[in-house]
Design a binder for these strands. Sequence first.
DNA 1: ACCTGAACACCGTTCAAGT
DNA 2: ACCTGAACACCGTTCAAGT
Lengths: 221, 221
Amino acid sequence: MGAMPSVPRRAAGRPPRISRTEIIDTARRIVDEEGVERLTMRRLAGEIGSTPMALYHHVRDKDELLLLLLDDYAARMMRKPGLPAEPRERVVVVAAAIRAVLAPCPWIAEVLTADDLMSESALWFVEQILDGLAECGLSPERAVHGYRAIWYYTAGEIIVRAAAARRRAGDDRPTYRDRVFAGLDGTELPRLAEVAPQWAPLTAQDTYLDGLRALVDGLTR
Amino acid sequence: MGAMPSVPRRAAGRPPRISRTEIIDTARRIVDEEGVERLTMRRLAGEIGSTPMALYHHVRDKDELLLLLLDDYAARMMRKPGLPAEPRERVVVVAAAIRAVLAPCPWIAEVLTADDLMSESALWFVEQILDGLAECGLSPERAVHGYRAIWYYTAGEIIVRAAAARRRAGDDRPTYRDRVFAGLDGTELPRLAEVAPQWAPLTAQDTYLDGLRALVDGLTR
DNA sequence: ACCTGAACACCGTTCAAGT
DNA sequence: ACCTGAACACCGTTCAAGT
């Protein structure tokens, strides 16, 4: 999606040999093929046929590179959903759209910890959430806090589920949680004992929308 | 919290100069004082007055060390709060207690995103949340989903805020977000443009409890 | 059994210099 | 303005040897 806010200024001097676009495209390929942990500045520079330090002329540091990568991913994946007239439902639909784009991208968890999803392509989504909350009568300040609560919930859901999936992959040994549940004291912890056998299937269910609706209802009451 | 599965066997040979206890105590001090990213095997060994490789005689690798640290931390920090009679308020108080323990120690949240239950010491807290939700009329299944929603929100809040704090520390250069905000189109994104100047202070405010109350209200309506 | 020193194969980033 | 090479200050872990 759109150009970066600060478009590199063409001015006198040596013409650039590598571009931010080339950097991001190559980084994306490495991440897609081998995972985010294999993306290093040195490896990336080598792949481009340049030196690590040339990269620092186009991105501030590795964190910014990861942010740009997330932005790039979001820009090519984000599709604006149709907006319901009812403002609360609009908030739900837009938050769910953000989550739908980010959830299947496994390396994202590490970048998501950036303190907001504040890339260019996400702005429209944030705007819709703020607008929906405002139309429900929230002040601008409370709308921002409401958006943040929704973002916490969404980021948490994505990160926790991604970590669970990562851990589940290729490992049949009983987890630490299995062992804890096995030794559960049903008289001291009756609610847990009651649901313990169902815990795995229950927590595997996708209930993001239910929780999101509860949160939005609570925020706009 | 229980003994480790493999207790070091006392046998013939050279007497140990360092112990697993000393390793964990020192590691905890480093993490408490300077953050988990400063905990390295080399640094830890230096602090103990030994060598990196001596550590590998007492822990399998750095991952195991972090797991041991998590166990240790959970066991000594969790204090049961007083429980209000009103079930919704009970849920709020218990969730806030979990968050209060984990927030100053964000590295733990990143480790424990793998499972939603980190250890035996957390079970009592989960039980109270399930019980509060059940008393509000939720079925056992819906109570588990409600607990998960609260956990997503809590884990997300801790992780996002921790990342923001990390990013903020000692860096005055404008962030990526600053640049995105600077180029904001106020006619297309009026709500965002309105709050943009206030974004940093607004998102720095601690509104965990507000969001939590909204979520719990929404879950128990 | 426990510990050491050296080495391997890496990191991200700064700095000064080149074109 | 853009790029390079060398260097800085680190990593986790393996290996072979010492006590």
